[in-house]
Design a protein around this nucleic acid. Structure first.
Length: 481
RNA sequence: GGUGGGGUGGCCGAGUGGUGAGGCAGCGGCCUGCAAAGCCGUUAACGCGGGUUCGAUUCCCGUCCCCACCUCCA
């Protein structure tokens, strides 16, 4: 069975065949770095990280590109606000911060969040501000082809002419006539209210650092044009997969497609969109006060559990977060890890020593059906535990190696564990616990169970969890979820 | 108004024209000095009203509700 993926443009699951055998070119939309990462950004990144890992596990050589939008209205607005007399600085937004410093600072915040959750860096991460030349070439090409025009009002804006492109709306299957106009839309120099900006003329008061010379006057890029320009530069005029959040389908991706297709490019062969993260079914928003940030999640649970949670629903489905979700993920994950620890020595806990179960492969090939793949994983864990209970170490170890393999593909095993240090404090803790455990063993040997249980309770009260096994008492520090 | 996607057991969440994954939670049992961990068993669902069919949760029609986008939000 080969990989099948749901393509938003054709609205169906199709067999995936890359343009060039053995190689996959993937572009997916990253963040506009105007604030700290939102859980939704990270969910999207996890979804495409899993896609990339699965493509690689399937033998493809993947060239992945994820953009950084480091110039846009909001970045400029927030920077400008930080210079206002009545501005109140806070931890996220200090006073008097230049737009490029603000953008760069949040770009790094995104990297920290991605890294913490084991989202591998793409092959390349181009910034919009570094590709002004490529955007100019694309805009000029569109003007020459009659699909774009400089505004007649001396604003310096250049717009894409949606009326000139009959296929406009094809990605989301909408008719131009049916689209609701934005109630507060400022038509400016547009021929049609739905025309969108390719280039925005510099306005008085905006920083000079945020403007570039162009054939149409000084200014800065519109939002959509960067993705068309950068994907074409690094992946070619036609590439395999374009991804992003469901909310980017329109207008962002629709406009990208229109620009690139009107410029004569084939553009993306498959469009993939991940679903939104909600809080108990409602969209997270600051105004509703129902948000939870990646940072808060990481403070509440181990990074691996957060990753497990973010990846456990099908990527196209809405992912429901609610209090307790992370605890559930933690419990499920702990069972898996406990089995591997039970079956394999630490050093053998590496991928590459077993084949993925056929059912797991089939699930992943079926439009990345991670929930079904996780079902296979859990069934493998149970089968392994059953084998170990029956004294069949060989089968138990095989199942454990398969489990390790599956965790590797899902990207869970590579999430860094910041708590696992080998510093002197950990060594001291280890000695302390071992001392208490030997006292407990003595107490148990002399049938002084009250004392033995008191020691266990004492350890439990500080988060040290005890398990009696055939090899003696094992201990672990439980996370404070 | 337009477009797309949904409504599955206590919760999360796959899937399918024919006694219906998986996880979490619950209950009973095995094991254990007691636990923990593990295993076994078990409780329990397909928004509603029609239709097609030998049989529908799965297909069709209607209906109600929810979500997303149409406002430079992943």
């Amino acid at each position: 069975m080969a990989l099948r993926l749901y393509d938003t443009k054709t609205a169906q699951v199709r067999d995936f065949q890359p343009q060039e055998p053995g190689k996959v070119s993937l572009y997916y939309c990253g963040a506009t770095v105007q604030g700290n990462p939102h859980v939704g950004h990270i969910r999207s990144a996890v979804a495409f990280d899993i896609l990339i890992r699965w493509l690689e596990a399937s033998g493809y050589d993947v060239l992945s590109v994820r953009n950084v939008t480091d110039i846009d209205d909001k970045i400029l607005e927030k920077s400008a606000a930080s210079y206002a007399d009545d501005f109140t600085p806070d931890v996220d937004y200090p006073a008097q911060e230049a737009w490029f410093a603000l953008a760069y600072r949040f770009e790094q915040a995104f990297h920290h969040a991605y890294d913490a959750l084991g989202v591998r860096r793409p092959s390349y991460e181009p910034r919009a501000t570094g590709h002004i030349t490529e955007m100019h070439a694309l805009i000029q090409r569109l003007i020459d082809a009659g699909h774009a025009y400089p505004a007649p009002d001396a604003s310096g804006d250049v717009y894409f002419d949606v009326r000139s492109w009959s296929a406009y709306g094809e990605l989301t299957r909408q008719n131009l006539e049916d689209m609701q106009d934005a109630p507060d839309a400022d038509p400016r120099g547009k021929r049609d209210p739905r025309d969108f900006a390719l280039w925005k003329g510099h306005k008085p008061g905006e920083p000079e650092t945020a403007a570039w010379d162009s054939p149409w006057g000084r200014g800065r890029p519109g939002w959509h044009v960067e993705c068309s320009a950068m994907s074409t530069k690094y992946l070619g005029e036609t590439f395999d997969i374009h991804g992003g959040g469901l909310d980017l389908r329109f207008p962002h991706h629709e406009n990208e497609l229109a620009q690139s297709a009107a410029a004569g490019h084939g553009f993306a062969r498959f469009w993939l969109h991940n679903g939104m993260v909600t809080f108990e079914g409602e969209k997270m928003s600051k105004s509703l006060g129902n948000t939870i940030s990646p940072g808060e999640m990481l403070a509440a649970a181990r990074p691996k559990a957060v990753r497990y949670f973010l990846g456990q629903a099908h990527y196209r489905s809405q992912l429901v977060y609610k209090p307790g979700s992370l605890q559930e993920a933690e419990t499920a994950l702990a069972r898996i890890e406990h089995f591997i620890d039970r079956a394999l020595p630490q050093k053998a806990n590496q991928p590459g020593t077993a084949d993925l179960p056929t059912a797991f492969r089939a699930a992943m090939d079926d439009d990345l059906n991670v929930p079904a793949a996780l079902a296979v994983l859990h069934e493998t864990v149970r089968a392994g535990n059953t084998a170990l209970d029956a004294g069949d170490a060989t089968t138990g170890q095989l199942r454990a190696r398969e489990t390790v393999e599956m965790l590797h593909v899902l990207g869970i095993s590579e999430v860094p564990e910041p708590q696992n240090s080998d510093g002197p404090a950990d060594a001291a803790l280890g000695k302390l616990v071992e001392t208490m455990l030997s006292s407990r063993a003595e107490a148990k040997a002399s049938k002084d169970f009250a004392r033995a249980d008191a020691i266990r309770d004492q350890l439990a009260s500080v988060g040290v969890h005890i398990e009696d096994t055939a090899q003696g008492a094992q201990w672990s520090v439980k996370s404070g979820v």
